[in-house]
Simulated assay, not measured.
Amino acid sequence: MKFKLILSFLLLAPCFVAFSQENQSVKSEKQGIAVADKGLIKISVMYPFAEGKTFNMEYYETKHMPMVAGYLGANLVKYTIEKGLSSGIPNQPLPFLAIGTFYVKSLSEYQAAVAPNRDAIRADFANYTNVVPVILVSEVVK
């Protein structure tokens, strides 16, 4: 009986070790994301909702955001695109049609990359929206 118990333990031990290592890896990845983003500069380009305003998400996703991302080069860590669905308060209007966010390492490098391309970026707005965006520049603290 003791032999079977020891044999069972020896056969199952590698499974427990592998499971434990996998959980540690997932935990580290989740913690690493927050640590990796801390200190990044976040540029949020928010498109407020209003009656009669339009937004072409397909164009924004496939043309505009990749164009701007290309200007940012190695300074760009990542970017995200969000489509507004509803307000956080029931029966209230949608606050934003969409939000595009760039995460960069350096604000000064971001500004240097955008400055010579500002006219091209603004001219492209007409291809996907009639909304004037609100831009917030912030630092990721956690």
Rank of each mutant, 00 (worst) to 15 (best):
Q24D: 10
P95L: 00
T54F: 06
Y60I: 10
A115C: 09
M65Y: 12
L12P: 04
L5A: 13
Q92T: 04
I41Q: 01
G84H: 00
N117I: 04
L10I: 13
I41N: 00
G32W: 15
K4N: 02
F125I: 08
E29F: 13
A74M: 00
P95G: 00
A34D: 08
P116N: 08
E139G: 04
K2N: 10
E29I: 12
P93R: 03
E22S: 14
F9T: 15
I121P: 06
L7F: 07
Y79D: 09
A69N: 05
M57W: 06
K2Y: 08
L97H: 02
G70W: 07
V68M: 02
R122W: 14
E29C: 11
N56Y: 05
I33Q: 09
E139W: 02
E109Q: 12
M46G: 03
L7G: 07
L72E: 02
D124W: 03
Y60E: 03
S138L: 02
A123K: 15
R118Q: 15
Y110V: 03
I81V: 13
F55P: 00
I81E: 09
L7W: 07
D37H: 06
L76M: 11
V132L: 15
V26T: 11
K142R: 13
E109W: 02
S20F: 14
V114Y: 10
I121K: 03
S28K: 15
E139P: 01
L11P: 06
P66E: 14
V45C: 10
V68Q: 00
